[in-house]
């Protein structure tokens, strides 16, 4: 489990990101990555609810399409949906032993190489805006104290994220918040469309396309969705940013 020092750093990093007009999607990706690093889980994903009360994937620790699908499937069935519906954490250490609980989700999760799952609500007071999902490897049968550390630390991180999303202004105005979440979810779609275009244009994987988008967004201090829109619009200022091969470990395959 994480060192005190690193843990403190991550919380400071996350809190630091919560400035005015921050990039929600980038923030949530960073959160998912830090969960994997600190909690030593295999994968993390974050689902937010849209205004029609459906869960949608907004960020994940990797862009593996298979993993994203696994998160997405939970809009209909799975620990994330249960967690969102009840507002309570859902923890299954051994998915194989509880296969009957989610007949669609469980085989898909096992097939993708995950053995256990923790779903944590993202809530502030009575308001639930989504759920965070952590997957563990099948071989590691977690000791009870380990599992509860993952749960409590994960919950702390989910809480930080929730505070970040709600923000001061949005928390007061229910409708404003739900409108912002709706825009963020559409932004996610724009990013997927731009990833597809970049992957095809440069014959790279979707993962690499996303990494390039993120790197460029960071370098130019732009929001991911804005940059994605510029890619789609063939904005001459961004069209060439991938031409310089900055990643020597280019692979043809993808997740």
């Amino acid at each position: 489990m994480p060192q005190q020092q690193r843990l403190a750093e991550v919380f400071v990093e996350l809190a630091d990101t919560l400035v005015v007009d921050f990039d929600l999607i980038e923030f949530l990706h960073r959160l998912a990555e830090r969960c994997v690093e600190l909690l030593e889980v295999e994968a993390a994903g974050i689902l937010l609810t849209d205004q029609a009360d459906e869960l949608q994937v907004i960020a994940a620790s990797t862009e593996q399409t298979r993993l994203l699908e696994l998160f997405q499937l939970q809009a209909r069935q799975g620990p994330c949906l249960d967690c969102f519906a009840t507002g309570r954490p859902v923890r299954v250490a051994d998915l194989a032993a509880e296969a009957a609980r989610w007949p669609l989700f469980t085989p898909a999760a096992l097939d993708a190489g995950y053995g256990g799952v923790v779903a944590l609500p993202m809530r502030m007071r009575e308001r639930i805006i989504g759920a965070m999902n952590l997957f563990t490897a099948p071989s590691t049968v977690l000791a009870v104290d380990e599992a509860s550390t993952i749960q409590s630390l994960g919950q702390a991180m989910a809480d930080v994220a929730t505070i970040g999303i709600l923000g001061e202004r949005a928390a007061r105005e229910h409708q404003l918040l739900s409108q912002q979440l709706q825009i963020a979810l559409n932004s996610r779609v724009i990013i997927e469309q731009a990833k597809g275009m970049l992957a095809e244009r440069h014959q790279i994987s979707l993962d690499q396309a996303f990494a390039a988008l993120r790197a460029q967004a960071r370098n130019t201090n732009r929001k991911l969705a804005d940059l994605a829109q510029a890619v789609i619009d063939d904005d001459p200022a961004v069209v060439d940013f991938l031409h310089a091969p900055h990643d020597p470990s280019r692979r043809a395959g993808h997740g």
Binding site: Q193, G196, L206
Partner: peptide, 26 residues
């Protein structure tokens, strides 16, 4: 949309890829 398979992530990704392959808009 969001019905049987329309709102899936790979559909969005594929839309972007096909746009480049065909040289058309999304």
């Amino acid at each position: 949309l969001g019905g049987p398979g329309e709102g899936r992530i790979e559909v969005y990704q594929a839309t972007g890829m096909v746009a480049v392959q065909l040289g058309v808009g999304l």
